[in-house]
């Protein structure tokens, strides 16, 4: 079977599975979030009521958009404090069999923000930094709650379209509780068991030593007590030569974190190698399950949207736009990687795909996955806000690496993260109908709601916040010694690494071009700020739009109303998304992956 056919079949299988699941799952999400009685609400009613009673929540209380936003912000601030304190106090807390010391203050700040914002950027190495209690009670809990927060915001925005002359958009506490209790927890439990069946580990054992067949000599980088690499006067890592026949195998409650890592589009690996690690992602089947899990809820939410607004065609239109963007860019990544490196080809190295070799660019990829499954994973993880990786994006070809970078820069909406994908594409839909309205000279409408100056101001804040943070952050990093210190690959690739880091942080993705040494005070602080503002400023703007739309009356559909479910609208939506992405990022991309591509191909 040719490599291209393998990629096409794998992609088609994954997409067919998630699209088949979109209808039942999307319907289920609409039911539980709107409190329409179904089997889950009946089974969980007592537990749900108990949670409300213990937390002092009045489930019948409706909130204005600003109260909803303030509740959300306070909830996430509290989550950030808990994750920070768990890291700083972990040496005195239980479930730390390796007796790992406290995480440094700057890294703890960065990680707390990363997990609260659904980014899961990891400047640290999990197996040598985080105690089991920190991983499970801090990071995994935030994996659930940050995904639930995103879903709550999406449902609140959809209510903005469905409600008429309403001052409220729902109850944040109820939305977070229901999305965690009825969606994320049961799905994660199922996936965790399935992953354990494939060999993903789940235990609280201390790390195990295995004796290897051969002796191994390697240069081991020295670290300080906080786990940061020691550098010499020139800034190079200090290493010591070590010969050993002992390999330490890290253990831990991995499967339970792995499942929500994918389903919640979080992406924070239990281990530093993330889903490339055999204890996180051991087989081709576990890899298939993980890719499908990343895409599952975001695609299903388009159906939820259709159900809630009473016109499923509206959801299908958004799904179609997401699918087209995803399929095209995933194919570009695969073609770039399978095409291989011209530098190697010019030296007579055979990089063609045959029955006995994968060909193409296998640097940074696991042989058990190959190029097709690695390229598809890279596209899935950056088309959503996941950020898990099963290959090293830094080792991709320039145009292969361009794909994850650009998918994030489009706003992670093809299909996007849990909740974030649907609310981001809805903001672009609002912008699209506004542009169309300007062209035909008619007041723009979307789903019966007039789009006016206030909504456009809020949409502009939403759309401009992230590029501003990303580009300013990148500029600051390349101009300051703190930012330059982390670059091991000066030139176009080093610039790509910095741009990727801030793009990943600003869009709450969390994947990395791993060549950048980012566990420094500069990057921990700057990326932390970008992650927080890149998450919560757009969320506040989204909730403000929800409140504004909910307060409006619904205007009747007339012959002059632009249909928002056909091919014309899908094209308009895709055009708007690509145009905004290109306008924001082309100059930066030209300095990074594009120039690197031409340098590489021009040299041969």
């Amino acid at each position: 079977m040719s490599a291209t056919l393998k990629f096409a079949l794998l992609g088609a299988l994954v997409l067919a599975l998630v699209i088949l699941c979109a209808k039942p799952l999307g319907h289920y999400i609409a039911d539980v979030m709107e409190g329409r009685p179904n089997f889950a609400l009946r089974w969980g009613a007592r537990l749900e009521r108990w949670i409300y009673r213990v937390c002092g929540i009045d489930a019948r209380e409706e909130m204005s958009w600003s109260r909803y936003a303030i509740g959300l912000l306070v909830f996430n601030l509290a989550g950030g404090l808990v994750v920070y304190l768990l890291q700083r106090l972990q040496q005195w807390l239980p479930f730390n069999p390796q007796q790992l010391p406290a995480v440094s203050a700057d890294s703890a700040f960065n990680t707390a923000v990363a997990f609260v914002t659904n980014t899961d950027w990891q400047g640290y190495s999990g197996e040598s930094t985080m105690a089991y209690l920190t991983q499970a009670a801090g990071l995994t809990v935030q994996n659930f709650l940050s995904a639930a927060t995103g879903l709550a915001v999406a449902i609140a925005l959809i209510r903005g379209f469905t409600r008429r002359s309403s001052a409220t958009i729902g109850n944040f506490w109820v939305d977070v509780t229901r999305s965690s209790l009825y969606l994320l927890l049961p799905l994660s439990a199922l996936l965790a068991v399935a992953l354990m069946g494939q060999g993903v580990i789940q235990n609280l054992h201390s790390y195990r030593d295995a004796t290897t067949i051969e002796k191994l000599t390697f240069d081991n980088p020295k670290s300080d007590s906080a786990g940061k690499p020691l550098l010499d006067a020139k800034g190079n890592p200090i290493t010591e030569s070590v010969t050993t026949q002992i390999q330490t195998l890290p253990m831990g409650p991995v499967a339970s974190q792995e499942a929500i890592k994918e389903l919640g589009t979080n992406g924070g690996g239990f281990f530093n190698a993330n889903s490339a690690h055999p204890f996180e992602n051991p087989t081709a089947l576990s890899n298939f399950m993980e890719i499908a899990a990343i895409l599952l809820i975001p695609f299903a939410l388009t159906y939820t949207f259709g159900v809630m607004v009473g016109d499923r065609r509206q959801g299908f239109a958004l799904m179609a736009a997401m699918l087209i963007l995803f399929a095209v860019l995933a194919a570009v990544a695969f073609v770039s990687e399978q095409g291989g490196n011209p530098s190697l080809a010019s030296q007579g190295i055979d990089a063609t795909s045959t029955a006995s070799q994968s060909g193409g660019n296998m640097e940074g990829k696991e042989t058990r996955f190959g190029i097709a499954a690695s390229a598809l994973f890279a596209a899935a993880t950056t088309a959503t806000s996941c950020g898990a990786v099963n290959s090293m994006h830094d080792s991709m070809m320039p145009m292969g690496g361009f794909v994850p970078l650009f998918l994030m820069q489009l706003g992670e909406l093809a299909p996007g993260g849990v909740g974030t994908g649907i609310y981001t594409i809805l903001i672009f839909a609002i912008l699209g109908v506004f542009i169309a309205g300007l062209m035909i000279g008619r007041t723009p409408e979307y789903l019966g709601k007039k789009i006016q100056a206030r909504e456009m101001k809020l949409a502009s804040i939403f759309i401009l916040t992230t590029p501003t943070l990303v580009l300013l952050g990148t500029a600051l990093a390349v101009m300051t010694s703190g930012g330059q210190a982390g670059v091991f690959n000066p030139g176009a690739h080093g610039f790509s690494e910095i741009l990727y880091a801030f793009t990943s942080a600003g869009n709450n993705n969390g994947s990395a071009f791993a060549g950048l040494s980012a566990n420094t005070v500069f990057y921990n602080v700057s990326l932390g700020i970008v992650m927080w503002l890149g998450r919560f400023w757009p969320i506040v703007a989204t909730l403000a739009i929800a409140g504004s739309l909910a307060a409006k009356k619904r205007v009747p559909v007339t012959e002059g109303t632009m249909p928002t479910h056909g091919a014309l609208f899908i094209s308009l939506l895709i055009g708007t998304i690509v145009l905004i992405g290109v306008l924001n990022y082309v100059p930066a991309l030209a300095l990074g992956p594009v120039v690197e591509h031409f340098m590489l191909s021009g040299a041969h």
């Binding site: 306070v74 920070y84 923000v113 809020l458 602080v525 700020i529 919560f536 400023w537 703007a541």
Partner: peptide, 30 residues
């Protein structure tokens, strides 16, 4: 050092809180 990062976290919260308050007062400009 902890106080520095806790204050920074609080500052980020207040920056988001402040945006919510500002947007509540944002008119439609018409």
């Amino acid at each position: 050092m902890d106080i520095v990062y806790l204050v920074l976290l609080l500052g980020l919260f207040l920056a988001s809180f402040g945006l919510a308050l500002a947007l509540e007062r944002l008119g439609d400009g018409s």
